[in-house]
Nucleic acid binder design. Structure first.
Length: 453
RNA sequence: GUGGCUGUAGCUCAACUGGUCAGAGCGCUGGAUUGUGGUUCCAGAGGUUGGGGGUUCAAGUCCCCUCAGCCACCCCA
């Protein structure tokens, strides 16, 4: 303000953020952190160990690993030292570099999880952003189908632990697809063919055939033969039976079929719900490096959001970085898509505070006692906030209510004199007087209240 | 990256064919005799109509550019 009482002329920068990038307020960050924490717990439960890698890598490390598209979508620039660098667009390529660089120290098989941001210069859409978080888990160094089964189990476990009940893990095998393409004579066009095949869910049959003719140079008969795959229907066992004649005599195809069988059987044998996994021969996954099983997970209630957890097996993760052959399998949880889904499905409670217990700063002279009580309760494992000002009690309770605190502990002059406190359940409004000289009693009472959902 | 639709207070929206059109509800802040929230009542703050330019006597309302959001393609978490 100047002498006239008017605001001084000043060039203000309008606060704004880049398209496709986001700010996170507490009410979205709280469920976000919870989801990350849940994913970590699941990964750890299977023995996956955490790693991290730089967001920036030398450009040649990243280029050409995920196909032309990922090259195009990659954020890249020349750094201040004149180096060509890129921001990672997934966590698999950095993993490859990481394992190639440290394989001597890591030992195989190596199981890791990696939760971090990745960047893709793509148009934003619902559930799709330019900066988003991936939660990868991979097992490097084993060819055994056991890790394929485990991958399916982890996906199942993840979705379950995140509170989703209605979802389908779609399973397919690149080996089967390649086997069939080989017998048809289109193996060299596999990428284009599979890309078209992948669209079957969205586009109609004739459009897919036309695209195969156009982009992959397939004949109409060849295209139609491939599309027979999509006609396969029914139970997993039924599809497996139907596939058998289609791959017979082709080594790759037969191997793929046998492995698919083993995954389905192993999934159920481990105690998971077999109905949750569904062989779908039309899913191919765009990524070029998959060579075996491929997974894709769709929420039954929100299929439009796309896959929320996908991955697959690759023979040679790090061939461009090292002579050592490193086969592996893994998948990536789409945290941002799942959060968008939870939001849309009303699975996210509106809470703006991570604390449960609220202590109003009620009696002006009681600050030390409030702080002491809060400290005691925190040491007992509770999350507690003391209001920072001695405002009117009603206003403080209003604040607590809005933020979503569960319990308020009210103490004024009377309570201090009597050695008690009022424990108020902010959801029901019920209030009980509890003695404060025995902390255990109070903590027990609070835990009882908090355990009620 | 390409194409389409949209853009008014923090949020959801209103304002006839360009002319008191800058509003409502919710939210927010404060109050309704000094120890109790989520109900009610009162008051207040808050927008140069995303930004810039143009047409016009006059634009939120028409045109262009730009930014952002949504949708489709591409691709994918």
């Amino acid at each position: 303000m100047n002498a006239d009482g008017k605001e001084t002329e000043k060039t203000r920068i309008k606060p704004r953020i880049l398209s496709g990038f986001r700010d996170f307020r507490p009410e979205v960050m709280i469920p976000r952190e919870r989801m990350i924490e849940t994913a970590k717990q699941v990964y750890r439960a299977y023995g996956f160990a955490p790693i991290d890698t730089p967001t920036l890598e030398y450009l040649d490390i990243l280029l050409g690993k995920g196909g032309d598209e990922s090259d195009k979508q990659m954020y890249r620039f020349t750094d201040n030292g004149g180096r060509e660098v890129g921001m990672r667009f997934d966590l698999t390529v950095p993993l490859a570099r990481f394992v190639a660089q440290h394989s001597n120290d890591l030992g195989l098989p190596f199981k890791r999880y990696h939760i971090a941001l990745v960047w893709r210069g793509e148009r934003q859409q619902f559930g799709r952003y330019r900066e988003f978080m991936q939660c990868d888990f991979d097992c490097i160094g084993s060819l055994h189908v056991s890790s394929d089964i485990e991958t399916a189990l982890v996906i199942d476990d993840l979705l379950h632990s995140l509170g989703f009940d209605r979802f389908t893990i779609r399973l397919n095998s690149r080996q089967i697809l390649n086997g069939i393409l080989e017998t048809v004579g289109l193996l060299d066009k596999s990428v284009a063919v599979l890309r078209s095949l992948d669209k079957l869910g969205k586009v109609d049959r004739t459009a897919v055939i036309e695209e195969m003719e156009e982009k992959a140079g397939a004949s109409r008969t060849e295209a139609e033969n491939i599309l027979k795959l999509a006609d396969l229907n029914g139970s997993n066992q039924q599809i497996l039976r139907d596939l058998e004649p289609m791959v017979r005599g082709n080594e790759v195809g037969e191997t793929g079929l046998a492995r698919l069988h083993a995954i389905v059987d192993g999934f159920e044998a481990a105690g998971a719900n077999g109905a949750r996994i569904k062989i779908d021969v039309s899913i191919a996954r765009g990524l070029a490096y998959y060579t075996g099983a491929v997974f894709e997970t769709v929420l039954d209630d929100l299929p439009g959001i796309g896959s929320v957890c996908s991955g697959g097996r690759y023979d040679d993760l790090a061939g461009v970085y090292t002579k050592q052959e490193l086969p592996g399998i893994g998948a990536s949880l789409g945290l941002d898509r799942l959060l968008a889904a939870q939001e849309k499905l009303g699975m996210i409670p509106e809470v703006q505070t991570p604390a449960q217990i609220f202590i109003p700063y009620f009696d002006k002279t009681g600050l030390h006692q409030y702080l002491k009580l809060a400290g005691d309760l925190r040491r007992a494992g509770l999350r507690v906030e003391v209001y920072p000002e001695a405002k009117k009690l009603g206003q403080q309770l209003k604040y607590a209510d809005r933020r979503g605190f569960v319990v308020a502990i009210i103490q004024g002059r009377d309570e201090f004199e009597q050695g008690v406190c009022q424990v108020k359940d902010l959801r029901s409004g019920d209030q009980n007087e509890v003695v404060t000289d025995d902390l255990q009693v109070l903590v027990q009472h609070l835990n009882d209240l908090l355990s009620v959902e």
